[in-house]
Design a binder for these strands. Sequence first.
DNA 1: ACTCTTTACTTAACACTGTTAAATTAACAT
DNA 2: ATGTTAATTTAACAGTGTTAAGTAAAGAGT
Lengths: 210, 210
Amino acid sequence: MPPKPKTELERQYLRTLIIDAARELFVSSGVNAVTMREIAKRIGYSATSIYLHFADKETLLRAICDTDFLSLATSLKNVVLIAHPVDRLHALGRGYAAFALTHPNHYRLMFMTERAPCDPEQSSLQRNSAEQDAYYQLKTVVNDVHQAGYFRADLKDADLIAQTIWAGTHGVCALQISMAEDKWVNWCNISARLQLMQQVMMRGLMKEST
Amino acid sequence: MPPKPKTELERQYLRTLIIDAARELFVSSGVNAVTMREIAKRIGYSATSIYLHFADKETLLRAICDTDFLSLATSLKNVVLIAHPVDRLHALGRGYAAFALTHPNHYRLMFMTERAPCDPEQSSLQRNSAEQDAYYQLKTVVNDVHQAGYFRADLKDADLIAQTIWAGTHGVCALQISMAEDKWVNWCNISARLQLMQQVMMRGLMKEST
DNA sequence: ACTCTTTACTTAACACTGTTAAATTAACAT
DNA sequence: ATGTTAATTTAACAGTGTTAAGTAAAGAGT
C-alpha cells in the first residue's frame, strides 16, 4: 500500500518512529539483536524503508546515541540547584552512575562501543550547552569547585580534572556492565565500589580539610 | 586432500594455528573483521574445519582471550621484584595501562566486550596464581601495602581496594580506547591522565604522609 | 589382497545479516 | 487523460555463522 507525498513533519514523525522502535529493541536485547528487518516489522514497514531516513545502521545507532546523550544531560540538569559546589560534584557523579547502571545498553552504546568518532559538527546536540552537553556540565562544576579553592594547588587544568573524575566513575560503571557476571573476580557490592571511588577521587583531588 | 589420523600433539598444533591466525586478524582489524572463512583461508583450511576444534566463534574468541589474560599476567609478573610495596602498586598500574594501550583490540575483547561470563572452571588459566592471574597479582600487592600499614584506617577490604584501583586505571584506558578520537571532548594527553589517576588513587587511598 | 571402520576434511546448503536495484503504486500537476 | 514525482515494496546480492552430507586417506581385521 504505497502512499502520497509527505510533509516534513510526517517525515520527522516516521524518523522518530524508527528510532523509538530501534531503541526498544536494543534496550531489551542489546545492539546485536537489532536488525533492520526486525525494526521494520515493529513499525509495519519494510526494511528498506529505513534507508530512506538513515544512510545505514551505523547512522541509525548514532541517532539513538544522540537522543541518549541528551537524556543523560537532561537527567543531570538539576544538579545546578545544589548550593555547595562540592555537593554538586558529588551529585553529578551519583547521577551519572545511576544513568549508566539503569540503562546499561545505552551506556554501552554511548561510551563503550567501537564506532566512528562523533563529529560535533553533524550532531544534533549543542556542545557547551548546560542542557545538552553532560561533559560541559561536569566541566562547569569542576570549574566551580576550582574557583572556590577546593582543589589541590598543583591542579590547574579543568579538563584534566574533569576527565579524571569521569574516568574514575566510568571505570566502576564499565567494569560493572561488562564484568559483573564474571565469576573470576569476587566482586564487591556495586554501591560500595561507587562510593569508595567517589571518596577516593575527592580525597585525591582536593586539599586536605580538617 | 584428506589426510590421516592425527596424534594429540598434531591436534594441539592445529588448534594454536587457528588461534594465532584469528588473533592476527583481529589484532589488526578488530573483532568484526574476524570471520571464520577468513581465518580458514589464512591457514589453508576450509571454514568448517575450525568447528572441529572450537564449538563456535564465541568459544574461539574466548580461547584468544585466555591467552591474552595469560600474557597480561606474564607482563606484570616482574613487579614482585620491586622492593617497596607502594612502588609495586605503582608499577602494576603502569604495566597494566601499558598493556591496555599497546594492545587495544585485545584489551577491548578482554574487558570491554559483551560476552558470556567467564567460568573459572573451564578456563585454561589457573585462578589465584601469581603467574597467570592478574587480578590475584593486584590483590597480593594491595595486601602487601595494607599489611605495611599504608592504607587509611577505614579501608579494610582488600577486594574493594583492588577493585577500585582497577576501576580507576580501567576507566582511563577504556575511555582512551573507545573515545580518544571523539572530537566532542577536548582530550588531555593520555600520559597526563594516567599519571593524575594514579596520583589521585594513591592520595585517596593512603594515609597522609609528611 | 580385499574389505570395513574411523578420522580429517571439504563442499553444499540453511537461515540470517546489511544493503542496493528494480519494480509498484498512489497522489499531484498539467 | 497523461506524465511526473515520491513513498514504499519486492527481489536480489554478497556476506555471515553454522550444520548436514559427502569424500578420501589411513589403518585394522579377515
